[in-house]
Design a protein around this nucleic acid. Structure first.
Lengths: 137, 137
DNA sequence: TAATTTTGCTTGCGTTTTGCAAGTGCAAAT
DNA sequence: ATTTGCACTTGCAAAACGCAAGCAAAATTA
């Protein structure tokens, strides 16, 4: 259904073809901080994504192997979304966005704390967070 | 004119508010590879951005301090666009996009060569490229 | 057991953004 | 003097977005 058209062979362009919009990386962000989210969890995020947009982005991300759907262990009505390894591999990129924003915006202090950790040992932080996210998928 | 509305305090969200679309980072990419571009140069890129979209993105990037306009040394008719230091600071993020894409897409071989260099010494590559870009602004 | 609520979406519809083509004004070349 | 090049702007149809309402299945409550 959600077929991506590649605009060129450029890796930047190909990447943006998948998640280059205002919402997709926020979904990835939620999954990186929460490890797993239900549809309703995404809707509760601060940015207030519209439900039809959320559905369409989840589909695109799933089609492109960034996230997967899982049944909830306690309820058939609920769906759990998780990052795939390909999605977890977006972690370094997400951290660089955080670091860039840290330099030019005022950050919420909870995030600031994490960023200090990242600045101290970027590779170490990413390595451990990656492992912890992969253990969950 | 181009006033960005912040959807939340999240750094990822604030960043996407500025360059979170299919085109802005391609403009940044062109400037990182070419150091400076004219309006026409951007139009010539493989992805074939529409001229009105290009104009609107250039304005947003300029308004948000990512790029600046300069007169062309040899012609009043030409305009040179360059990255500001804030724009150059997007280099680590751009490299992570490249590295992610390298893992999941087939890359053009010229880009592949650069990526090998990056993989060998990421920090070193970024440090030197940053200096070289800043010398130009 | 029946009624209500929760959950994960889908549908309709007005508004905004995009993409394509053509046009404009100034500078430079012929 | 006229044509070409360059940096945009404008008009318009098509697509995407954003909001509200609707819907079916599962879970909870009465």
């Amino acid at each position: 259904m959600k077929d991506i058209k590649k605009r060129s062979d450029c890796p930047i362009s190909s990447s943006l073809d998948i998640w280059g919009d205002k919402w997709s990386l926020l979904i990835v962000r939620d999954l990186m901080f929460a490890k797993e989210c239900t549809y309703g969890d995404f809707l509760k995020s601060d940015e207030k994504i519209a439900t039809n947009i959320l559905a369409s982005r989840l589909l695109t991300l799933e089609t492109n192997g960034i996230i997967t759907k899982h049944g909830h262990p306690e309820s058939k009505a609920k769906v759990l979304y998780k990052l795939t390894p390909k999605g977890v591999d977006l972690l370094p990129l997400m951290m660089e966005i955080n670091l860039w924003a840290d330099k030019y915006f005022a950050l919420p202090k909870e995030r600031k704390a994490m960023l200090e950790e990242v600045k101290k040992d970027k590779e170490g932080f990413i390595r451990e967070k990656t492992i912890s996210l992969l253990n969950n998928s």
